[in-house]
Design a protein around this nucleic acid. Structure first.
Lengths: 338, 338
DNA sequence: AAAGTTTATTAAATCGGTTTAAAGATATTT
DNA sequence: AAATATCTTTAAACCGATTTAATAAACTTT
């Protein structure tokens, strides 16, 4: 039988109250007693039962992680890595992470994740694009939450963002450093805040660095609405090539696009990077193992998760704290496509 | 304030015991009382508190999902999909799934997942290749568990497997139906039980169907130990081409390899499928969107997870049940590489 | 040395369910 | 009609922690 707090108390010759105080590192216990209790705890290998302490504390000890179904299944591991960062960070705390997916066309009353319906979490991390009505609902119900790599413009929320702007700027800068003069941009999901920022950085950098002088109309840009896939990359590069404007580099809004672009360029016998350099964004797993290995803006996904976790826990412990925005820096990893 | 069982009892004019009996669908309550209690429960939107019922029931209400770190991060979503199947299946039960990763060189005493160390799960699903000492430990501690897509030869465990053999056989059969006579095999991770089975099916089918007659030494095989990557595919196809044996099709032990193979074939100006047909295995997300779309053996990953979940819950509820093996069927999805 | 503080300790209530055992009500047998 | 069996219902114990409020002990003041 696993030991309980009573066993420990009896064994150490103190009350359960004292044991509890020691376990939770709270004052009001003499040094000797504290020591005594601690050794008994380790001797008997005692671990307090979660359900009991949760019941008494009126906490659940769980954190929810919500992600759009398609994102978890289909995009190349980006958010899974964020999840892993959270899971890792949670390991030296008392929280467990409950992962669930939602559909984007989701109905607050019928599709609500179980752990929200039954109040089984103390807070929630929302990864990537999530239903706005879900966010509103959390706000209304005053459930602590953090947006991870997502932003609802005009709303003040806790959020952890990638430094998309500086990443985009660096990307263009690096290409310029390598001597590229006519740098194109290919982006999908133009409505996603992150992608918007990357594009904004691109245009600014182009101007600042006085690039694309042959192209006064900023015509080296291909953007579409749909989700980002390799096919959009293929489509995009073809559209740009068709314009017959000088172009010696492409900055892609993410790696998946970039891989699609390179594939198509290779098919059409362009040499990468000799003829056209390609820069991605995200540094997904495939980027490193691509042939040739993709130069890209590295996003520390685990760190994103870690930071979201930290921010959430702070918010849980301090509900009155004003919503915060934390920005995670990125850097360029030069591989062989530039 | 959220209603408690007491509130419900008072509201319905019965005891908490009765409410509990009704909630858990247990006998000993008259039809009218049952009805009355049920309506009060829905009226007040009552949900029993997990921690309280867990404490009383001496259960945790959690199921652990353990996966090798590298598998979760790097292999193309295979096990993430299995996880999703489990998560989905768990939704209409009372279990929550706790996902964690372990390193393969893992030490039972220092690296034990938290939920095992503290006894916070009622059972565990182990996905893919996992440390054997972990399995032994679960066995010793009599914690219910199910292996998902893994098998420790010579040991009797609960496990859910892919029908690798029939999948492999079908693969060869389909290629033969398309008129292919010299079918090669490329496989990595030769020590993985699943891969072994696929290879066994290949050799048997080749014999049964009297293929590869030009090659009496079964020399159209490339196998290596390391993890499966696209690069191994490239390596493999080159090794086979170098042999200069007639070859009009390649069956790859999984899709990742297959994609590597196709990439290399294209680079070397072979036409797929005209010159060489390529068949994969797994039907990963990328297979569908590959150019050309990959013909492959579809593995219903969500169903794998679902079945593992069902089996685990059965085992939890009936610990004396003998270990079971459940095999999940597969089928060939013909796309454009054959 | 008595009174007042401060510190250490614990008895007992509490969290919100489940379950056992006993009582109460009904139905059945003799 | 009394005795027995069956079905409903519930009081109270229990699960294993936390926390409050009271007590006991040690330390300061005057």
């Amino acid at each position: 039988m696993k030991p309980t707090i009573k066993i420990i108390a009896k064994q150490a010759g103190v009350s359960t109250a004292t044991v509890s105080l020691v376990m939770n590192e709270r004052p009001g216990v003499s040094a000797e007693t504290r020591e005594l209790v601690k050794t008994t705890i380790t001797e008997l290998n005692y671990h307090p039962k979660r359900s009991a302490s949760q019941l008494a504390r009126k906490q659940t000890g769980n954190i929810g992680f919500i992600i759009w179904e398609d994102h978890f299944s289909e995009i190349e591991m980006f958010y899974s890595q964020c999840f892993l960062g959270i899971e890792l960070a949670s390991r030296d705390s008392d929280y467990y992470i409950l992962l669930t997916t939602v559909k984007l066309d989701f109905n607050t009353s019928t599709d609500l994740p179980r752990f929200l319906k039954y109040g089984d979490v103390d807070g929630v991390v929302l990864a990537g694009r999530v239903p706005h009505n879900l966010v509103n609902m959390l706000e209304k119900r005053k459930i602590p939450f953090v947006l991870l790599d997502y932003d609802i413009p005009g709303k003040l929320h806790n959020k952890v963002l990638i430094d998309n702007y500086s990443g985009g700027y660096t990307a263009v800068q690096k290409l310029a450093e390598k001597g590229r003069k006519n740098i194109a941009y290919i982006g999908g999901s133009a409505d996603h805040p992150s992608i918007k920022e990357r594009y904004r950085a691109y245009t600014t950098a182009i101007k600042d660095l006085k690039l694309n002088v042959d192209d006064t109309n900023l015509d080296l840009v291909y953007q579409t609405e749909p989700e980002i896939t390799r096919e959009i990359g293929t489509e995009g590069i073809n559209a740009l090539l068709a314009k017959n404007i000088p172009m010696d580099a492409v900055f892609c809004a993410n790696d998946t696009l970039a891989i699609g672009v390179i594939q198509e360029l290779k098919r059409q016998k362009y040499e990468v990077p000799q003829d056209i350099a390609v820069m991605g964004f995200d540094d997904i797993y495939a980027a490193r193992f691509h042939t040739p290995p993709l130069t890209t803006i590295h996003v520390p996904k685990m760190d994103l998760g870690k930071e979201a976790y930290k921010l959430l826990v702070e918010t849980i412990n301090n509900p009155e704290q004003r919503p915060q925005t934390r920005v995670i820096g990125v850097d360029c990893i030069c591989r062989e496509t530039t």
